[in-house]
Protein backbone atom coordinates (compact mmCIF):
# COMPACT_ATOMS: atom_id res chain seq x y z
CA UNK A 1 0.00 0.00 0.00
CA UNK A 2 1.27 3.47 -0.83
CA UNK A 3 0.33 7.10 -0.34
CA UNK A 4 -0.85 7.27 -3.94
CA UNK A 5 -3.51 9.93 -4.27
CA UNK A 6 -2.91 11.26 -0.77
CA UNK A 7 -1.60 14.74 -0.05
CA UNK A 8 2.13 15.06 0.65
CA UNK A 9 1.49 18.45 2.21
CA UNK A 10 -0.78 16.86 4.80
CA UNK A 11 2.05 14.46 5.67
CA UNK A 12 4.13 17.52 6.48
CA UNK A 13 1.27 19.00 8.49
CA UNK A 14 0.88 15.85 10.61
CA UNK A 15 4.64 15.58 11.12
CA UNK A 16 5.12 19.25 11.96
CA UNK A 17 5.99 19.93 15.58
CA UNK A 18 3.75 22.98 15.32
CA UNK A 19 0.67 20.78 14.96
CA UNK A 20 -1.25 21.87 18.09
CA UNK A 21 -1.51 18.42 19.63
CA UNK A 22 0.27 19.03 22.94
CA UNK A 23 3.52 17.30 21.95
CA UNK A 24 5.71 20.33 22.72
CA UNK A 25 5.42 19.72 26.47
CA UNK A 26 6.62 16.08 26.31
CA UNK A 27 10.30 15.13 26.26
CA UNK A 28 10.03 11.35 25.74
CA UNK A 29 12.26 10.74 28.75
CA UNK A 30 14.87 13.30 27.67
CA UNK A 31 14.30 15.62 30.64
CA UNK A 32 15.04 12.80 33.08
CA UNK A 33 17.97 11.60 30.97
CA UNK A 34 19.42 15.10 31.20
CA UNK A 35 18.78 15.22 34.95
CA UNK A 36 20.50 11.85 35.33
CA UNK A 37 23.53 13.05 33.36
CA UNK A 38 22.93 10.50 30.59
CA UNK A 39 22.42 13.22 27.99
CA UNK A 40 24.74 16.19 28.24
CA UNK A 41 25.65 17.10 24.67
CA UNK A 42 24.81 16.27 21.06
CA UNK A 43 26.90 13.06 21.10
CA UNK A 44 25.12 11.64 24.16
CA UNK A 45 21.80 12.82 22.74
CA UNK A 46 22.58 10.70 19.66
CA UNK A 47 23.12 7.65 21.89
CA UNK A 48 19.86 8.35 23.69
CA UNK A 49 17.87 8.72 20.47
CA UNK A 50 19.38 5.57 18.96
CA UNK A 51 18.34 3.70 22.09
CA UNK A 52 14.84 5.14 21.85
CA UNK A 53 14.60 3.97 18.23
CA UNK A 54 15.50 0.40 19.20
CA UNK A 55 12.80 -0.07 21.81
CA UNK A 56 10.12 2.55 22.49
CA UNK A 57 9.96 4.15 19.07
CA UNK A 58 9.97 0.79 17.30
CA UNK A 59 6.84 -0.14 19.24
CA UNK A 60 5.19 3.22 18.50
CA UNK A 61 5.97 2.97 14.78
CA UNK A 62 4.66 -0.58 14.42
CA UNK A 63 1.54 0.28 16.41
CA UNK A 64 0.90 3.36 14.24
CA UNK A 65 1.19 1.21 11.13
CA UNK A 66 -1.16 -1.37 12.63
CA UNK A 67 -3.71 1.31 13.54
CA UNK A 68 -3.56 2.79 10.04
CA UNK A 69 -3.86 -0.68 8.49
CA UNK A 70 -6.93 -1.58 10.58
CA UNK A 71 -8.62 1.70 9.69
CA UNK A 72 -8.11 1.83 5.92
CA UNK A 73 -11.19 3.50 4.43
CA UNK A 74 -13.75 0.99 3.31
CA UNK A 75 -13.31 -1.35 6.23
CA UNK A 76 -16.42 -1.57 8.34
CA UNK A 77 -16.56 -0.46 11.94
CA UNK A 78 -17.63 -3.97 12.88
CA UNK A 79 -14.32 -5.43 11.81
CA UNK A 80 -12.14 -2.51 12.92
CA UNK A 81 -13.45 -2.13 16.48
CA UNK A 82 -12.28 -5.50 17.88
CA UNK A 83 -8.93 -5.02 16.15
CA UNK A 84 -8.53 -1.55 17.69
CA UNK A 85 -9.36 -2.90 21.15
CA UNK A 86 -6.84 -5.69 20.74
CA UNK A 87 -4.23 -3.21 19.53
CA UNK A 88 -4.83 -0.99 22.55
CA UNK A 89 -4.28 -3.93 24.88
CA UNK A 90 -1.20 -5.08 22.98
CA UNK A 91 0.40 -1.64 23.35
CA UNK A 92 -0.43 -1.49 27.07
CA UNK A 93 1.15 -4.92 27.51
CA UNK A 94 4.38 -3.71 25.93
CA UNK A 95 4.72 -0.47 27.88
CA UNK A 96 6.00 -1.60 31.28
CA UNK A 97 6.08 1.87 32.82
CA UNK A 98 2.68 3.24 33.96
CA UNK A 99 4.10 6.73 33.38
CA UNK A 100 4.91 5.83 29.77
CA UNK A 101 1.39 4.46 29.26
CA UNK A 102 -0.14 7.58 30.80
CA UNK A 103 2.01 9.89 28.68
CA UNK A 104 1.13 8.00 25.50
CA UNK A 105 -2.59 8.19 26.30
CA UNK A 106 -2.42 11.84 27.32
CA UNK A 107 -0.78 12.78 24.04
CA UNK A 108 -3.17 10.53 22.15
CA UNK A 109 -6.16 12.31 23.70
CA UNK A 110 -4.72 15.71 22.70
CA UNK A 111 -3.91 14.46 19.19
CA UNK A 112 -7.38 12.99 18.73
CA UNK A 113 -9.07 16.19 19.91
CA UNK A 114 -6.93 18.23 17.51
CA UNK A 115 -7.17 16.02 14.42
CA UNK A 116 -10.94 15.61 14.88
CA UNK A 117 -11.14 19.25 13.89
CA UNK A 118 -8.07 19.63 11.68
CA UNK A 119 -8.48 16.55 9.45
CA UNK A 120 -11.84 15.02 10.38
CA UNK A 121 -12.51 11.48 9.18
CA UNK A 122 -14.43 8.35 9.97
CA UNK A 123 -11.20 6.67 11.03
CA UNK A 124 -10.47 9.32 13.65
CA UNK A 125 -14.05 9.14 14.94
CA UNK A 126 -13.89 5.35 15.15
CA UNK A 127 -10.77 5.50 17.32
CA UNK A 128 -12.46 8.11 19.49
CA UNK A 129 -15.47 5.84 19.92
CA UNK A 130 -13.29 3.13 21.47
CA UNK A 131 -11.97 5.50 24.14
CA UNK A 132 -11.23 9.24 24.42
CA UNK A 133 -7.58 8.63 25.23
CA UNK A 134 -6.08 6.25 22.64
CA UNK A 135 -2.33 5.76 22.59
CA UNK A 136 -0.66 8.50 20.55
CA UNK A 137 0.52 6.05 17.88
CA UNK A 138 -3.04 4.80 17.40
CA UNK A 139 -4.36 8.35 17.07
CA UNK A 140 -1.70 9.20 14.48
CA UNK A 141 -2.42 5.98 12.59
CA UNK A 142 -6.11 6.91 12.48
CA UNK A 143 -5.44 10.43 11.21
CA UNK A 144 -3.23 8.94 8.46
CA UNK A 145 -5.82 6.32 7.53
CA UNK A 146 -8.44 9.05 7.21
CA UNK A 147 -6.20 10.89 4.76
CA UNK A 148 -5.52 7.79 2.69
CA UNK A 149 -1.89 7.62 3.81
CA UNK A 150 -0.09 4.30 4.09
CA UNK A 151 0.80 2.43 7.32
CA UNK A 152 4.48 3.04 6.56
CA UNK A 153 3.86 6.78 6.39
CA UNK A 154 1.99 6.66 9.71
CA UNK A 155 4.93 4.79 11.22
CA UNK A 156 7.38 7.30 9.81
CA UNK A 157 5.48 10.27 11.19
CA UNK A 158 5.32 8.73 14.66
CA UNK A 159 9.00 7.74 14.64
CA UNK A 160 10.14 11.16 13.43
CA UNK A 161 7.97 13.02 15.93
CA UNK A 162 9.28 10.94 18.82
CA UNK A 163 12.87 11.56 17.80
CA UNK A 164 12.35 15.26 17.10
CA UNK A 165 10.36 15.81 20.30
CA UNK A 166 13.06 14.32 22.52
CA UNK A 167 15.78 16.15 20.58
CA UNK A 168 13.97 19.48 20.92
CA UNK A 169 13.53 18.96 24.67
CA UNK A 170 17.25 18.26 25.10
CA UNK A 171 18.07 21.32 23.01
CA UNK A 172 15.92 23.54 25.24
CA UNK A 173 17.23 22.07 28.50
CA UNK A 174 20.92 22.05 27.58
CA UNK A 175 21.18 24.95 25.16
CA UNK A 176 22.52 22.70 22.41
CA UNK A 177 23.36 24.02 18.96
CA UNK A 178 20.07 23.77 17.01
CA UNK A 179 21.90 23.18 13.75
CA UNK A 180 23.85 20.30 15.28
CA UNK A 181 20.63 18.80 16.66
CA UNK A 182 18.89 19.03 13.28
CA UNK A 183 21.99 17.49 11.72
CA UNK A 184 21.67 14.61 14.16
CA UNK A 185 18.03 14.11 13.12
CA UNK A 186 19.14 14.12 9.49
CA UNK A 187 21.75 11.42 10.26
CA UNK A 188 19.04 9.33 11.92
CA UNK A 189 16.71 9.67 8.93
CA UNK A 190 17.80 6.39 7.25
CA UNK A 191 17.21 4.45 10.47
CA UNK A 192 13.85 6.17 10.85
CA UNK A 193 12.89 5.29 7.28
CA UNK A 194 14.02 1.67 7.66
CA UNK A 195 11.87 1.35 10.76
CA UNK A 196 8.89 2.90 8.98
CA UNK A 197 9.27 0.56 6.01
CA UNK A 198 9.52 -2.50 8.26
CA UNK A 199 6.50 -1.37 10.28
CA UNK A 200 4.52 -0.79 7.09
CA UNK A 201 5.43 -4.22 5.73
CA UNK A 202 4.36 -5.93 8.97
CA UNK A 203 1.30 -3.78 9.64
CA UNK A 204 -0.93 -6.84 10.08
CA UNK A 205 1.58 -8.79 12.15
CA UNK A 206 2.22 -8.85 15.90
CA UNK A 207 3.83 -5.82 17.52
CA UNK A 208 7.50 -6.05 18.47
CA UNK A 209 8.06 -6.76 22.16
CA UNK A 210 11.47 -5.30 22.88
CA UNK A 211 12.04 -4.26 26.46
CA UNK A 212 13.55 -0.85 27.23
CA UNK A 213 14.01 -0.96 31.01
CA UNK A 214 16.32 2.06 31.03
CA UNK A 215 13.72 4.31 29.47
CA UNK A 216 10.95 2.79 31.63
CA UNK A 217 12.98 3.73 34.68
CA UNK A 218 13.56 7.28 33.41
CA UNK A 219 9.84 7.72 32.78
CA UNK A 220 8.98 6.50 36.29
CA UNK A 221 11.59 8.69 37.98
CA UNK A 222 10.36 11.67 35.99
CA UNK A 223 6.78 11.15 37.09
CA UNK A 224 7.89 11.24 40.73
CA UNK A 225 9.82 14.50 40.38
CA UNK A 226 8.47 17.53 42.12
CA UNK A 227 10.17 19.95 39.77
CA UNK A 228 9.74 19.26 36.10
CA UNK A 229 9.35 21.38 33.00
CA UNK A 230 7.96 18.67 30.72
CA UNK A 231 4.86 16.57 31.22
CA UNK A 232 6.87 13.40 30.50
Amino acid sequence: MSDQGASPVLVLLLGDSRLPSGAHAHSGGAEQAVAAGLVEDTATLADFLEGRLEAGIALEAHAAAASCHVLVPGDSAASALPALEALDEAIDARLASPAARASSRRQGAHHLAATRRIVPSGAVELVGSVRPDPHLCVAVGAACAGLGLSPATAAGIVAYQSLAGAASAALRLLGLDPVAVSGLLARLAPACEALAAAAGAQADGPLPARAGPGLDRLMELHRQRKERLFAS
Partner: peptide, 21 residues
Amino acid sequence: AVETGCCPHTAIRDDIAANLA
Protein backbone atom coordinates in the same frame (compact mmCIF):
# COMPACT_ATOMS: atom_id res chain seq x y z
CA ALA B 1 -1.18 22.72 36.98
CA VAL B 2 -0.03 22.26 33.37
CA GLU B 3 3.56 21.60 32.28
CA THR B 4 4.80 23.81 29.46
CA GLY B 5 8.05 22.13 28.33
CA CYS B 6 10.21 25.26 28.83
CA CYS B 7 7.91 27.27 26.53
CA PRO B 8 5.16 29.03 28.52
CA HIS B 9 4.04 31.09 25.53
CA THR B 10 3.62 27.99 23.34
CA ALA B 11 1.25 26.47 25.91
CA ILE B 12 -1.08 29.49 25.90
CA ARG B 13 -0.79 30.49 22.25
CA ASP B 14 0.53 28.06 19.60
CA ASP B 15 -0.41 24.73 21.16
CA ILE B 16 -3.12 25.11 23.76
CA ALA B 17 -4.03 21.39 23.86
CA ALA B 18 -2.92 20.72 27.44
CA ASN B 19 -4.47 23.91 28.85
CA LEU B 20 -7.72 23.35 26.99
CA ALA B 21 -7.88 19.79 28.30
